[in-house]
């Protein structure tokens, strides 16, 4: 019986892992993009308006890209992930008249967008916390902005955001269970099926062991990374 349950739960856990890794693979680059978007300083009205009023001054420094990206972050962070799953999966199907995504794909897309917004805020905090002098040092040494990012800022940034990222990543493991709302057969789905079909509660408790074990590994991994980066002392 235990072997049977374990096998079933493992197959559900495989789906959970698909969502987990898929979200990291797509969510982190997307988060970086959103972070840069939210820090964009392109101000199209900078030279157009000459008036001295306070409104004109505000308009001159207005950056539409950053504004739109921040609105987007507000919407995504301000609504439940559960609702976003439903909107992406069922909403797209209603709109098109037929289902658009595979269930797991819809889950990965939604999770990626949702987590990208949280990542973006963490990334922005990290980027802004690297002292300006580091950039200036790179500039006077003739580096391009991209070189400064990859060779100067990036590693310091990674070190700084690690604790916050470990929080997000561990939360993500548990959030994968939400995909059940659009019928993704992740681990809790299998556990719950034992409750309804066979009146067994312990398989549902057993799912917790999987989460605990996986997060245990992640905790050790993050501790290892942080230890490896210990030599970088932010000056």
């Amino acid at each position: 019986m235990l072997a049977d349950v374990t096998r079933n739960l493992l197959s559900g856990f495989g789906i959970s892992c698909q969502i987990f890794f898929g979200t990291l693979i797509f969510g982190i680059p997307l988060g970086l993009l959103v972070a840069f978007g939210s820090m964009n300083t392109w101000a199209p009205f900078k030279r157009v308006i000459k008036s001295e009023s306070r409104f004109a001054a505000a308009l001159r420094s207005f950056s539409p890209i950053s504004f739109l990206v921040r609105i987007f972050i507000w919407i995504i962070r301000g609504t439940p992930l559960l609702l976003q799953l439903i909107v992406i999966f069922f909403g797209s199907a209603i709109l098109m008249g037929h289902s658009v995504f595979e269930r797991v794909d819809a889950a990965i897309i939604t999770f990626s967008i949702n987590y990208a917004c949280y990542f973006a805020v963490i990334f922005r905090g990290g980027i802004e916390s690297v002292p300006k002098g580091q950039q200036e040092a790179g500039l006077v040494l003739g580096m391009t902005k991209r070189q400064i990012f990859t060779h100067v800022t990036l590693l310091q940034l990674i070190k700084r955001i690690m604790p916050a990222m470990s929080n997000e990543v561990i939360t993500l493991v548990k959030d994968t269970a939400l995909a059940r709302i659009i019928g993704v057969t992740e681990i809790i789905y299998y556990g719950y099926r034992y409750v309804t079909a066979e009146a067994l509660i312990w398989p549902l408790f057993y799912t917790g062991v999987f989460f605990l074990a996986f997060n245990g590994i992640l905790t050790l991994l993050f501790a290892y990374i942080e230890k490896r980066m210990d030599y970088i002392k932010i000056l």
Partner: peptide, 19 residues
């Protein structure tokens, strides 16, 4: 980027790359 290389600059607070 090309022209600023005529100059080198040593900062008050060094700004070495810590990594």
């Amino acid at each position: 980027r090309k022209k600023r290389l005529h100059f080198g600059l040593v900062f008050q607070s060094f700004h070495l790359f810590p990594q």
